[in-house]
Design a protein around this nucleic acid. Sequence first.
RNA 1: GGGCCUGUGGUCUAGUGGCUAUGACACCGCCUCGACACGGCGGAGAUCACCAGUUCGAACCUGGUCAGGCCCACCA
Length: 806
Amino acid sequence: MELPKQYDSEEAEKRWQAFWEKENVYAFDPDAKAEIFSVDTPPPTVSGKMHLGHALSYAQQDFMVRFQRMLGKNVFFPFGTDDNGLATERLIEKLKNVKSKSMERKAFVKLCLDTLEKELRPTYIQDWKRIGMSCDFSLYYSTINEHCQRISQRSFIQLYKAGREYRKEAPVMWCPECQTGISQVECQDKELDSHFNDIVFKVDNKDLIIATTRPELLPACVAVFYHPDDKRYQKYKGKKANVPLFDFEVPILPDERADPEKGTGIAMCCTFGDQTDMEWQKAHNLPIKSALTHDGRMTGIAGKYEGLPLKKARKEIINELKEKGLLVSQKPIKHSVNVHERCGTEIEFIHSKQWFIKYLDLKEEMLKWGEKLNWYPKHMRVRYDHWAKGLQWDWLISRQRYFGVPFPVWYCRKCDEPVLADEKQLPVDPLKDAPPIKKCPKCGHDEFIPEKDVLDTWATSSLTPFLAIELVKDKALQKKLFPMSLRPQAHDIITFWLFNTVVKSQLHHKTNPWKDVAISGFVLDPHGKKMSKSKGNVIEPQEVTRKFSADALRFWAAGSKLGEDMPYQEKDVLTGKKFITKLWNASKFAFMHLADYKGEKPKKLEIVDRWMLSGLGDIIREATESFKVYEFSRTKAETENFFWHLFCDNYLEIVKDRLYNPEKRGREAKLSAQYTLYHSLLAILKLLAPILPYITEEIYHSYYAGKEKAKSIHVSAWPQPFKSDEDAEAAGNLVVYAVEAARRAKSEKNVSLKTPLKSLSLRGKIPKEEFEAVKEDILAATQAEKISYKQLDGKSEADFEHDLEI
RNA sequence: GGGCCUGUGGUCUAGUGGCUAUGACACCGCCUCGACACGGCGGAGAUCACCAGUUCGAACCUGGUCAGGCCCACCA
């Protein structure tokens, strides 16, 4: 069979994608006996479009999974979308031009669900299919669907019963813009301009200057602190300071957390300006004064400033201090503050009632859990360890938002006792559904108030192994799928997703959720800078695919190692495209010469053919070892190099004579070449199949499919290495040496490669008989008219020598 | 402030103790040779960031310096 002259990647990729879906090529087989390889695929957040970072990370996962499938494992590779939570809320608000807080919760949730279902998800998932993800897309979950709500709520109930969850009135990190509590992991640093304001407090009517960046918190001031060793301030011990403008007294106390070097060395404590304020409040049992409302305005304690937004209040309070001569100086500073990662708003600490998962007591265990995982690359574990060590808060899991998994909880109207849903009634929405009992077990009251908060989105997405596994109904099979084999993901969410998934799995099952974790890197712009919309250096994968094909994009993605960030260079994708063309053309050549090949094995293989198979065997061995430890970039680089330079440039050139001229070289010599061509090209295609699924499938089907058993190259067996053949390697190397010498000489003379050599004399270490066996191949490949050979003795430094004449 | 990673021809990159340091792109010269000009052949181009050490031998190991990136902490 002959291949068309050109490969139309766009048409072919669409065709194969449809074929894989129709034939269920990647379907998980619940009945198969083979070893299971289960993957905890990252569910991308539905945000409209896949970006290039996704393309890199998901392509890399797919290489690893496709390899495992070809090893013969029963692959469980589900696909989910993470479409619950604030990210989706904000997207819908933008798309539909609405404000969730000014809508009925029910109406807003419906709008989100409808928009996801009809507009976003179908095209979004298509982006993943397009880059060739070999997921079983029938194993699909959406983190907001009933299946996931049920599992998420069940997790809440179980952890509550296990004593791991509590509800408490406490200061929490709060986003005044999104008006919800948030957890440590959702904070980000941001450099902002601010001022150090030196403000006059009065002690016994004398001035005490205190520096602060947050004068608007003066009404919430509860104490003033100095360092116990600070001689300047020791005299104030036991005295009280009068707070300017608001005219009330607070104690002056010593505490080691006060830094003598900072500001004036004496600090005011307001409940709550920052983390230290909270520690002080606790340590010295100070009163709590709330200065801010949930939407970031001043409370009643601010007197005439009540109701003003924080920033405005700050400005006006500074003005009043100035007018009254209570502001000694104002220094501009730059400092980093915590902002909410979703909206960039400065975080406040606000006192409110929230649900937490208790886990600060587990820090030691957390480190052990991390140690038990196989990290690829190893050093990524450090990020996990740091995070665990640096935890300061229990996990705040309640969010005062609309679009999320509801808490399966009601409270007794009289005594506030929480009443949890029955596992059988899940999923529940307390706003619609009734609690499972009629009377409060504690006080006997019969009225209940539904919890209207929703769960943190990570409280659900940290359950992805179960969200995926429970798509399979057979309980025995579920057990076999867990712990999962592999968690692939990018390094930015180690502290979010990876960490929380480990925690949940350990809390529920006392075991890690997976054996291996593979962390991929980030895509940077061509100069190594982060891609961002504001810099205008964003590249869209859809555009790359359109221009160069999905295979070319994957070729690029296979160029970086796990964990390694990679600058995006269009030329690398172009190289991929050229590689695909080369593969096409070489296959076209091979099939032209294999048209009359019936699959028979020659009685004896020519040395050059043995050399080819032996060399390919080495590559197969190396590629297999690399792939097993997820080093697909090595496999790719080695196979690429072998295919292009050894297979195409040398081997194909050398065997042309035998293939084209059987009358001159003999039927057996041709058959030997055909046999070698058939098997080596097939092996090369298989080595490349995980990386370039489309072109390899196209080539496989145009010739091999009818002869080999597999319905797709992607479910065919990974190639077995051919056996090493050192004698053939030595002789083959002589042929390559001769060919290269002839080429160099002709190139230096600026003559065509088909120009004959008048004579060629070779010397090498192999015996004369072996030279005789490759003589015809050398003659044909170099176009030499005369050839001679002499064996070098063992002491000679060079392996080969030559003289030639053109 | 702490930690992790990286630093190889113009650009991107392979290479973790031992031949003249890999490949791609770009560059120069040649070649329409019965798969491929998205090609082939050849060429030029690297004090492997810097300094010191270990070693018979270092791009690779150790220590330090500098530069870049990321993560975390601080954030009165």
